[in-house]
Design a protein around this nucleic acid. Sequence first.
DNA 1: CGTCATTACGGAATGCGTAATGATA
DNA 2: TATCATTACGCATTCCGTAATGACG
Lengths: 296, 296
Amino acid sequence: MFDFSQLRCFAAVAEELHFGRAAARLNMTQPPLSRQIQVLERILDVQLLERTSRSVRLTAAGRSFLPEAQRILRLAESATHVTRQVAAGRGGILKLGFTAASAYDFLPRLVIALRRALPDVTLSLREMVSQDQVEALRAGSLDAALVRPPVTHPDLQAVQALAEPLVVALPAGNPLAGRDRLVPGDLGGEPLIAYAPNEARYFHDLVLGLLTEAGIQPRIVQQLTQIHAILALVRAALGIALVPAAAEHLRFEGVVFRPLALPAPWPVELHLAWRRGADDPLIAQLRAILSNLPSR
Amino acid sequence: MFDFSQLRCFAAVAEELHFGRAAARLNMTQPPLSRQIQVLERILDVQLLERTSRSVRLTAAGRSFLPEAQRILRLAESATHVTRQVAAGRGGILKLGFTAASAYDFLPRLVIALRRALPDVTLSLREMVSQDQVEALRAGSLDAALVRPPVTHPDLQAVQALAEPLVVALPAGNPLAGRDRLVPGDLGGEPLIAYAPNEARYFHDLVLGLLTEAGIQPRIVQQLTQIHAILALVRAALGIALVPAAAEHLRFEGVVFRPLALPAPWPVELHLAWRRGADDPLIAQLRAILSNLPSR
DNA sequence: CGTCATTACGGAATGCGTAATGATA
DNA sequence: TATCATTACGCATTCCGTAATGACG
């Protein structure tokens, strides 16, 4: 098999059609260049150049080999570059999972920051519920995941990516909508649109936990999974709901949001998870970007 | 820059994930293999493999480099093969020009023979009049050309590819159609559909030359370039025409063809032309195929 | 005789294999 | 202690540059 150096020699001679100039371009003297070409021709068992002492011309085979040689050389260059980029966490593909609710505010900010910091990284985004993301991480179909805590699987590792307040979503006509700030006690008599215990387990447990902690036995009139569906029912004045502050980005007409004073003021957490011990430098870059992300 | 041997080493180790097996596959011992991988990693300045004395794993960079390495190796193999094929005249692209009339019978036979003999040669066919083909040959936009003689340009070289008879095309109702065989003298009184002197110079000169030689002053009722147009007028009984025998392949209803006895019984010649001194082995192959082509 | 490709030759570097070492379960 | 990767070392080969040769106008 021939050698990159032989390809470079051949390409130079084929482009210059002159051994002297080609040798100069390659920072070498003519004799080794001559020999490299001869060796290449012997390896291929093909005459690539026709030379007299006055002129150098490509044979048909040489004309066909030149673009191949150039392509191989380009490919080798680019492979080097790409691999270095990947090693630095500045290239490659990042398969990132996210939960539906994180798409309202956090995910777009993260994506923008990622594109700015790592323009050569290809982002592959998939919305999945947290539990599926954990599975996908382990199976390798995700590299990183934005999930609800806790992430307990021993194969995985996670850090908090975001914490945000819970707010009360009220129909515009509700008397509580006139108040600036609410406390759990204010919600006692109100019918509650709540999260489904299976599909939205995290929010379900979080909301009910906080309310019972505050001594309130909520009257649940409906259980849903998706925030926009919950807000639609709030707008229809079927009840109130506790939703993450990011839901305000949905700008649902007829629904007003009021802060809720809680002992833990940022109870809604989103974590970034990845395979434990994965040396993927993209994960390191992602974590770095995450920690520099302005919280709002 | 790295080396093909290093790529092969890396690919083997990356595929086997075991230095011992990889070394065996490469017909070498582990130590040089280890060093080649190390050298590759130093050249790239990237860690491609994570190895303990018990296990070998790819890093993210290694995962990204593996397909590149494989691609480069494949490309090098195929470049070798393709170039050898081209050198043997068994590969590459043959840009072949032809005249319209040669497409009726001769060209298809040639193309079939070419495909059979040189399946890896890509044929690029272009219909052009002879004079344009000569120009295209010299400009390099054709490699070979099927043209009408004579080919006089000093840059070009040609051999006869085909000679065929002239036949008389007659409207089915013409009394001459009842005869088996005609001689030029039979055509004396007939109106003649002739070739245009500019666009179809070869046939124009050939036909008129033969008739005047036979002492006939033809009555030309129309001058056309394309054979199928000439035959259409013959069918309309506007006159008779002298056309190459290949025109019988057009199977024009209402037109009958009769042999014409001439002093030179194969007066219609087609020549194969190419650049003089072109060492293109495809031309040699083409000439060889041509000389083995059955005449009918 | 000048230009340009090729051959001849000597010294440096590279790369293999064998043998020894080191790390890990 | 067995396995497997790495380091140490000696030998053969490869490859460069300088010098000499050969072909062509």
